Amino acid sequence: MRQSIYQNTDALNQDFASKIVAILAQAIEQKGKASLLVSGGRTPLPLFKALSQSELDWAKVTISLADERWVSADDDASNEKLVRANLLQGNASVANFIGMKTDHEDANDGLSELNERYASMSWPVDVLILGMGEDGHTASLFPCSEQIEQGLNTADKLLAVQPTTAPHQRMSFSLKAILESEHIFLHLTGESKKAVLEEALAGDNALEMPIRAVLQNADVELVWAP
């Protein structure tokens, strides 16, 4: 695991945004398009705002999510709502966005439609930004869920997940899809997340802490600030 450590979150967000934009710009130059998967939560909000103000041919970028809660896009728990309000603004307002929620009541019933949506996305993804929970979950690969073995082993890109320690059914990219990404970043802030990461690095049971499966099988860059 490579590490980019910053003195504060302001320095992190400005440098990280520049790094992401450079990768996306190179992809556009080489392929004519680029793709970016992001995660939800509070941590990436300042990063999203920095990205939204960055100079890039955003019309050639497709943005989507690493995972999503199975709620409507206007629900406060929706990652799509968060991304639309913070990332798809300013210069980035012209980017293409693929939502990870369908009108189906059960996430399992939406898999077919979502697979069709993602067929239009540039794959493998150029940039994937992951977060991590206090339990070592990443995307919606929760150690508490019945679907965790499926998520770590399936050849499918997507799976529906029902956590037992968090609300809402989820849709998540699988470990296989995550590992296929060209550039994988783990974006964390704060000492508590650093301690969780150190615990993850000290063991190898991915069923207990799914982030281990990513760290063990991919070239991941940690981006961290206190």
Rank of each mutant, 00 (worst) to 15 (best):
M1N: 01
E182A: 12
W123K: 11
S72N: 08
N217W: 03
A34Q: 05
L12C: 11
M121H: 03
T9S: 13
E134Y: 03
E221L: 09
S52P: 04
K193T: 06
S192F: 02
D204S: 15
G131R: 01
H183G: 07
D109N: 15
G40Y: 07
N205L: 00
V38F: 08
A50S: 11
V61Q: 02
D76L: 07
V94W: 01
P163W: 05
T165I: 14
L47R: 09
T62I: 03
P163Y: 06
G136W: 06
S192R: 05
V161H: 14
L65H: 02
S140I: 10
A225K: 00
D76A: 06
L47H: 08
V223E: 04
D10T: 08
W70M: 06
A34K: 07
I184R: 07
E198Y: 02
G90E: 09
S181K: 11
T9W: 03
N96W: 13
G32C: 06
D204Y: 10
I211C: 07
I28M: 07
R42S: 14
G203A: 13
L130Y: 00
D74S: 15
H168D: 05
E29Y: 01
E105C: 07
I98S: 08
I211M: 08
I5M: 05
S4M: 08
D109S: 14
A206L: 05
A85T: 06
L188H: 12
L152E: 00
V220Q: 04
T138R: 02
T102I: 11
I63G: 10
A59M: 11
Y6F: 15
T138Q: 03
R69W: 11
G110Q: 01
L111T: 03
E199N: 13
S192A: 06
L24C: 05
Q26W: 03
G151A: 01
T43Y: 06
A34F: 00
A50R: 11
L114M: 12
G203L: 10
D135C: 06
S181G: 13
E199L: 13
H168V: 01
F97C: 02
A107F: 04
I23D: 08
L159G: 00
E208Y: 12
S93K: 10
L197N: 03
Q7G: 06
Y6Q: 10
R212T: 06
D74N: 15
Q169W: 00
E191S: 12
Y6G: 11
A206R: 03
Q14I: 10
M209C: 14
Q169A: 03
P124Y: 02
A73D: 14
V214H: 05
L82W: 08
D74M: 12
N8K: 05
K19V: 04
L37H: 13
A34C: 09
S181M: 13
E198A: 14
M100R: 09
L128P: 12
Q169D: 00
S54H: 02
M209T: 12
Q26S: 12
E191N: 13
S122N: 10
E80R: 07
E221H: 10
K60A: 14
V61T: 00
L179F: 02
Q53I: 04
M100T: 10
D135F: 08
A160G: 14
D156W: 00
Q7F: 02
L82V: 13
A202S: 15
A160E: 11
E149V: 13
P226V: 03
